[in-house]
Amino acid sequence: MKTKDLELLSSYLDRALGPAEMRRLEQRLQADPELRAALEALRATRDVLRQLPRRRAPRSFVLSPRQVAQRPPLPRFYPLLQWSTALTVFLVAILLTLPLILPRPSFTASMVAPAETATVLEAAPLRAAPSPQATAPSLTPPGGGVELPPATASPPMIAALPQETPMPQAGMPKEGATPESPARLAGEHERETENEAPPSELSPLEGLLPLARSLGIGLALLAAIQVFLLLLIRWWSAYQWRKKL
């Protein structure tokens, strides 16, 4: 017999079918003796189960003050506090283990990349200084006014460099490249940075890790307060309960 038919018969026995479904099943029952036999078997099974005698409780289950004193009733919000404490502890665990979970290479790259670029950029003005005239025309467009900003180790400088490299490329074929030219150094830097993770991908992690750490510490303090409150409520409920008894 199909499971669907079995469920229908079982529900029919309990009068739990809708009027339309019941009518359809009754029509099928009239036409199908096998289905009728299955219904009778289910009915007999249910009737046998209903014959089980009702037993009286072997003893009284009334609670004594001593029984309930061991576990005093707790306030209605207590389970909510328990759940929120559990959630806070879970978040603390996640936040404090975040640096360990994050992939190592990208983490170290974010620490190393700025240092490397800084040394390259620091070298640039020193090496370019002896021949300012040779490099100046290639950096200054005919309109004038745009100069290579002073080299610093700050990240904005790194971001600015790729935008300036097209200008020297336009002027270089005529004058030839000199090893000391800032354009060449900028190109070197570009190649170096190509081999590393892009700074835009690293900076969010750099920013997030200290934030996660401080948030973790804050939540750890909150969890400690919640645990203290849970213990206090338990103690207070027990105290009140003993007084009442």
């Binding site: 079982s10 529900s11 009778e40 099974t45 009737d47």
Partner: peptide, 28 residues
């Protein structure tokens, strides 16, 4: 669905004890 399947299993199990069961069950 659980009740329907439970009744079916019980019907098959109780068939082992036919001599103890009421005549209505034996007929089915």
């Amino acid at each position: 669905s659980r009740l329907a399947r439970a009744r079916l299993r019980l019907r098959d199990c109780l068939a082992q004890f036919q001599e103890l069961l009421p005549s209505a069950f034996r007929r089915t």
